[in-house]
Nucleic acid binder design. Structure first.
Length: 308
DNA sequence: AAGATGGACAACCGCCGAGGT
DNA sequence: CACCTCGGCGGTTGTCCATCT
């Protein structure tokens, strides 16, 4: 018997949020800043539980959230951070400050995982080098001998390293939207030749139209918030609270602007990271190292040998 | 044209850890 | 030290919408 869910109380509304509810929540946060979620329903009159309010804010209303198509670079990072960190979406999201963990998780579960599985399936049929791999990247619970496990681990590290190099290369920033399939190829066996999958292009178009209608709604909230962000830019206590690893960047005008321009997400995450790093290194701990360290570690050949 | 199917995504649920009492 | 509350996280579900048959 666990603790009863906080949303079991009577009179608590569930389901999609209405614009009116959004405005109530945003107005309150405009005035008081995020946090103290427990108090929000009673203070605002919202018939929602505190968790629902927090989730709505962090995944949807929070300024600086980038919606819509994932760039090639973002895809690269997600694929390889997932390979490194597993399904730790909050950790992965901390390297993509404009994306929410929920967004990344959804993108992985509904799109990337299937693409990867499909790709590997094709290669398996061709009798290529990944014949021994488990197709499901997120549930690799196959028992294997230690030597094999080590080789697999090394392969994963090498793949991650290779892809990160690719993702970090400046020229890659210019090719964001025309070679999405390459991500998969970089992950899968390099000897594979049947890489003419075009399934993703239709999906991306689909996504684009969907996100348009969705964004128009979110943009209204974003515009509402924009004035507030300007107002609060100088004494932004919330940003120091939220802009840490494991949570997301908040209270940064740059976030709002960057969702509409072509600034690379990596560049952005780097800048955010450098701001956060000095004050938050102790919070990063053993699981999440600063981006530059991760990058360095991944790119450093000698670490691989040491590790193995 | 209508029903079936599948993809995308917002939201919920339950567990866990941190911090306060 | 035990208990409680709160916030965060990952897994899962529900719903909407587009496409297919």
């Amino acid at each position: 018997m666990g603790r009863p869910p906080c949303c079991d109380k009577e009179g608590i509304k569930k389901g999609p949020w209405t614009p009116e509810e959004d405005i109530l929540l945003v107005s309150y946060i405009q005035e008081h800043g995020p946090g103290n979620w427990k108090a929000i329903p009673s203070k605002t009159g919202l018939l929602r539980c505190s968790k629902s309010c927090r989730l709505r804010w962090t995944n949807y209303l929070r300024p600086g959230i980038k919606r819509g198509n994932f760039t090639n670079q973002e895809e690269n990072m997600i694929i390889h951070l997932q390979a490194l960190l597993g399904n730790r979406w909050a950790a992965i999201a901390s390297y993509l400050p404009q994306r929410t963990d929920n967004d990344i998780k959804n993108y992985w579960n509904t799109y990337l995982k299937k693409r990867l599985s499909k790709k590997l399936e094709e290669e398996k049929k061709d009798g290529s080098c990944l014949a021994n791999n488990n197709n499901d990247f997120s549930s690799q619970k196959v028992v294997m001998p230690r030597g094999q496990w080590e080789r697999r681990l090394q392969t994963d590290i090498n793949m991650a390293k290779k892809a990160l190099t690719h993702a970090l290369s400046p020229q890659n920033n210019n090719n964001n939207n025309n070679n999405n399939n390459n991500n998969i190829e970089s992950l899968s066996c390099s000897s594979s030749s049947n890489s003419n999958s075009n399934s993703c292009s239709s999906n991306n178009n689909n996504k684009a139209t969907q996100s348009l209608s969705y964004a128009s709604n979110a943009d209204n909230i974003a515009r509402l918030l924009k004035g507030w962000m300007k107002k609060n830019n100088n004494n932004d206590t919330a940003s120091s609270k939220e802009g840490i690893l494991g949570t997301k960047v908040f209270g940064n005008e740059e976030c709002l602007e960057s969702s509409n321009n072509t600034t690379s997400s990596l560049e952005f995450s780097h800048s955010i990271y450098s701001q956060q790093e000095e004050s938050k290194t102790e919070e990063i701990g053993q699981v999440l190292m600063p981006f530059h360290l991760l990058e360095k570690w991944l790119l450093d050949e000698t670490n691989i040998e040491k590790f193995i």
